[in-house]
Design a protein around this nucleic acid. Sequence first.
DNA 1: CTCCTTTAGGTATCTAGACGAGTGGGCGAG
DNA 2: CTCGCCCACTCGTCTAGATACCTAAAGGAG
Lengths: 262, 262
Amino acid sequence: MTSLPTGHLGEVDPTSDRAVFRQIADQLREAIDRGRFREGEKLPSEAELVDHYGVSRMTVRNSFSILQGEGLVHAEHGKGVFVRPRPPVRRLASDRFARRHRDQGKSAFIVEADAAGSHPQVDSLEVKEEKATQDISTRLGSARKVLARRRRYLLDGRPVEFAASYLPLDIARGTQIAEPNPGPGGIYARLEELGHRLDHFEEEIRARMPSPAEVKTLRLASGVPVIHLIRTAYDTEGRAVEVCDTVMAADAYVLSYQLPAT
Amino acid sequence: MTSLPTGHLGEVDPTSDRAVFRQIADQLREAIDRGRFREGEKLPSEAELVDHYGVSRMTVRNSFSILQGEGLVHAEHGKGVFVRPRPPVRRLASDRFARRHRDQGKSAFIVEADAAGSHPQVDSLEVKEEKATQDISTRLGSARKVLARRRRYLLDGRPVEFAASYLPLDIARGTQIAEPNPGPGGIYARLEELGHRLDHFEEEIRARMPSPAEVKTLRLASGVPVIHLIRTAYDTEGRAVEVCDTVMAADAYVLSYQLPAT
DNA sequence: CTCCTTTAGGTATCTAGACGAGTGGGCGAG
DNA sequence: CTCGCCCACTCGTCTAGATACCTAAAGGAG
C-alpha cells in the first residue's frame, strides 16, 4: 500500500439510509477535521474519488458541493479542490471609537492593521449627497437627504469590509466631512469640532449569507457568511448624527464587546 | 395568457458567459426580491421550469441549490420549493445582564420571550463536571476542571440557541449552580451571593456556517449561518468566573450593543 | 535561454433518463 | 358519508456520458 491519494477514506454503503453523496462528504469532512488533509492541501480529484468509491462523477461533485456550502473547501477550476485555509482575523474591540483613538492622522483601520503587521488599503471611495432610504431616514430621526460616504477596506489585498456612512445633510454639507479625506481622527473628530459632542453609539449585529453583489465586492468564497453591523452615533443632545452600515466577511472578523455588569 | 406559474420569468441565453443555471437563479432571485413570489409561496416546480426554459432537470435543480445556499428558498420533499419566510427575530440588548434584570424568578430568556408574546422553552438540560477544553481553561484562568451547564432554547417550538456555561469547579461545586435549576436570577445571582460580585462581561462574536451537529440541534435550514458568542464574566477581583459559549441561529437574532463614546 | 504550443489532468456545465420516496387529492368500497 | 387505497405530482438521488475551459508542466521553435 503506497500512500494513495484516497488512502484515508473508507467505503460507502449504498443500502444505507444516508445518501451516498452525504456519506462521502462525511468521510471527507472527518478526514479534514482530523488533519488528514491540511489547510490549503488538495483533496483527491473527482476522478480519483469516482474510482475509489465506484460512484458516478455527479455523486462526487454533490459531496464536494456540500463541503463547499459549509465553507470547508473551495474548488479551483483546472487545479483541484482544496481545504480552505482559515484567514487571519481582525479583532474589533468595543473601545475602537474611544476618544483617545481619535487623535491620530490616519484612520483607525490603517493604524490598527499596521500594528498587526498587515498591509491595509482603503478603496472605492464615494462621497455624495443622496436621498435617504426609509431605514436610514428612520435611524437618523427622519432626515430626508443625507451625505453618503462609501468605502471598501482591504487587508493584504483581500477585501474584508464594505462600509457606508450616512449623515444628515444639514450637519455635513460644506464641511470637511463632505471631502474624500475627512482629516485626522475621521468624521467623528469633525463632528465633535462642529459642536456635536458624541455621547454613545448603538450597534446592531446580524449575520446572514451574502447577496451576489456582496460576494462580488468582498470576493467571498462560497460558504462564507457576512456580518452586518449597523452603528448609530448619538450626540449629547440625543440626536442621531451618523449611521454606518457595514458588511464584513465573517471569516475575517471577531467582534469583541465589553459590557458593564451594573 | 393566463397566469402561468412561470409567467414572471424570461428566457436564458445559452451562449452567454454566465452559466444557464446561474441565469435561472438570477431570474428567480429577482422575482422573489420584487415580491412576484411572496414569503412562503411556492415557486414553479422543477418540471415547469424545465418546460419553460427548455433545459434539463439537473440544470433547474442546480439553480434551486444556489438559492438554497443563499437561504432564500427551501425545498419540501413531495410538496415543492418555497420562498423562505423571515422568522421573527429575537433582539438581544447589551443590558440584558444588568443587575436590575436579575431579580425575577424566571430566567431572562423566559421573561423576555413571554413579553414578546412567544412561547419559550428550555430543553436538554445537562449539568455535569468535566475536564475543561484548552480554550475554556485559558479563558477561565487555567482552570482544569469545570462545571458545565448545557441547555437549548426554543421559541414557539423552534430551537434558536444552544448554550454551554462553564464555571471553575472550586466556585460552583456543591452550590445551587450545580443543580439543574439554579434558582431566581440564574447563575449570575448565585455567583454574587457566593461573594463573586460581577464587574463586567466580555463578549466575542463570530459568524460562520454551522457544523452538521449544529444543523441537527438547531434544526437549521440550509443557507442559515450561526452566530457564535463567547461571553466571559469577570468579578471585581478580575477573576473570570464563568464562560458561556452560545451558538445561535443567525436568522433568529439581532444583537444590539450600546457603547459609550468616551 | 526564452517563448509558444501541446497535452494531460483538473473542474464547470449540461443533457437524458431512471428509480425512490413524501404528499395530497380523488375515488371506490363499505 | 367515511375510510382507505391509488395515483399524480413533487423533490431526492444516482448513472453515464458529452463538451467546454482552465492550469501546469513538458517539449519544441527561435
